[in-house]
Design a protein around this nucleic acid. Structure first.
Lengths: 350, 350
DNA sequence: TTGTAAGCGTTATCAA
DNA sequence: TTGATAACGCTTACAA
């Protein structure tokens, strides 16, 4: 038997209401109370009613920590995103949050100021015994292995692992980049310029690689490549650097994302007096909302990020349920949003 | 003594590594291991070394649930945001996340599809015994009271409670709106139009109230007010409705946020051939990044949201530390970003 | 400084 | 269907 119960004494902090208190109030055992809060348990309607009434009266809520201790499931899903991704794709987080809630789980959010902080973050992840994780940041193979070792299901978001087969949702960045280059080349562009994303962005790497690859295949002149960091300013700055290095306006500028494309476009039209797309084509990636605004109507590539986010949670759910489902990565295609900032070749009718 | 330790048997799931395992490996007691992981505990360097080595060898990480059970602190901070806020201010979430991490705590994220979902969400919040909460959503007075009753420190973000004195960071929406109206009126605008934010946005309400209030004070004609929902399309649509209702172009359109202002501006200039600001002024709220882009340069009001987010965490930290600090709300001023989409009166030199 | 032992609030097992 | 009772993995007096 319990020694003392709710001490409403004036002394210190009030004790928390526990299942014992409810049991006492309802005149049943503590384990009966526990069962009443477990969905498919065997309790008589009478007991159920008594307990629920007592629980409501006492404002009782089960303690997740205690439950997690014994069940070994925390109902927590870790979401790890680099700050960049977080800022540029708020919809992803929003979708993840909704879908995770739909599974009856909670979202434990970790953001990385620098991609190198991930070590510390993982330590916290282990402490909280999360049921699974969705990661949109670069993990070393060793770190990926640690997920496996600790039996924490993992789904990568737009990242892949070279060595291991890790469940992932990813969009064909390189393929999309190749498509864009092809269409621009067919339309007669020859001198390309690339305003690249930041060096620590895996997505940016793949996009650039795809472009360079396809340009080479087509036997076109080597493009001017300048660095950028995904923000508005670096789009305009990048364009100036390109023109400086090339000594003239290039035929086409492909930017690592839409924000830079918008920056590039604004600088071209409003500061340098370049006619887009007549004199120069501009394209971006992501089809973010602003890219469709009347003032821009950017030529860009759309990833089905909402779908990807939703599927990532679904995939994680399967992994959490059947402990051993050998889920591979699922791939998505980008679709070209033709916009009005680039001269594109007509496509042959299907 | 413990009955059985790590059963590496082929049978089921491998047991987790616990402090007992580490103790055994290091040849010390389990409590010694616990002490080694507590910052200011009294342990001899020799023991510390032995334990840490054993822990590293076994990949031991303390279990947060077990710790939370006894310490009564989960090191979890709940952040509750309505989906809208989440999408329009990704920086807020980013800043909150960083600052919360700096306190050594973790961010448990709850997003609301509809503001009415908050009841369910709170239930989860109680289960997880969070150490505190930052809420950017509408709470009823009853719900606010529940935080107090359960002794969970609460800081409101850009929301206030009519009845209770709840710690909050909030920006003077009405004051900002009044300022904007004043400056436009001084510059000679007489017929105003308002494209309002969604009905369930507290911030939108306050902005509109401030505008109406000041217009009335100034004895100006009643403005046309049309509904909007904070998105790009509703800016353009709103403008068309305004012109339809008024039978002509108004002198000034004030939009509930920058996105609608951008939508309004694009429609005005590119579809209706209205010269902004010569023929009509347009203004928004929030000073979101896009409002400063060369194509827009919107006249808008900037809230120090980064500062506000950072201060919200600070305020919460103080509440979590001293259990009874009677912290009031802290207020911030919006600053006018003059932009180029509105004709504003010159200010008298200070 | 170290070890012993008593919880923390649940769920799971097993008789009754 | 119910009620004892034993975990779960940790922190924290208290005694040595």
């Amino acid at each position: 038997m319990r020694k003392k119960l709710n001490n409403t004494g004036a002394g210190g902090a009030t004790r928390r209401v526990t299942s014992y208190d409810v049991a006492l109030a309802a005149g049943v055992s503590q384990s009966a109370v526990s069962r009443c809060f477990k969905p498919g348990a065997s309790v008589s309607p009478a007991t159920q009613a008594k307990v629920m009434q007592a629980a409501a009266a006492l404002d009782y809520i089960p303690n997740a920590a205690a439950r997690s201790l014994i069940t070994r499931r925390s109902n927590l899903v870790a979401v790890i995103v680099s700050n960049l991704a977080n800022l540029y794709y708020p919809q992803v987080l929003s979708e993840l949050s909704e879908q995770i809630a739909r599974l009856g789980k909670r979202l434990l959010l970790f953001t990385l100021e620098r991609e190198t902080d991930i070590g510390k973050v993982l330590c916290d992840v282990w402490q909280y015994q999360v049921d699974g994780a969705i990661v949109a940041a670069c993990l070393s193979d060793q770190q990926i292995a640690e997920f496996a070792r600790r039996e924490v299901p993992l789904v990568l978001f737009n990242r892949r692992s070279r060595e291991q087969a890790v469940p992932a949702v990813l969009c064909d960045q390189a393929e999309a980049a190749r498509l864009l280059v092809s269409r621009l080349a067919e339309a007669g562009h020859r001198q390309f310029a690339i305003i690249d994303g930041p060096g620590d962005s895996a997505v940016a790497q793949e996009r650039k690689a795809g472009m360079l690859d396809r340009l080479f295949e087509l036997g076109l002149p080597a493009p001017i490549v300048v660095g950028g960091n995904y923000d508005y300013a670096s789009g305009g700055l990048g364009l100036r650097k390109v023109i400086d290095r090339l000594g003239r306006v290039p035929d086409a500028v492909i930017c690592g994302n839409d924000i830079m494309a918008i920056g590039c476009l604004d600088t071209a039209r409003q500061q340098l007096g370049i006619a887009v797309p007549q004199q120069m084509s501009v394209a971006g990636f992501d089809a973010m909302e602003a890219s469709g605004w009347l003032s821009y109507n950017i030529t860009t590539l759309r990833q089905p990020i909402q779908q990807m986010a939703s599927d990532a949670v679904l995939m994680l759910d399967r992994l959490m349920a059947r402990c051993g489902g050998a889920a591979e990565g699922r791939r998505y295609r980008s679709s070209l949003v033709e916009g009005a900032t680039a001269r594109l070749a007509m496509m042959a009718a299907a």
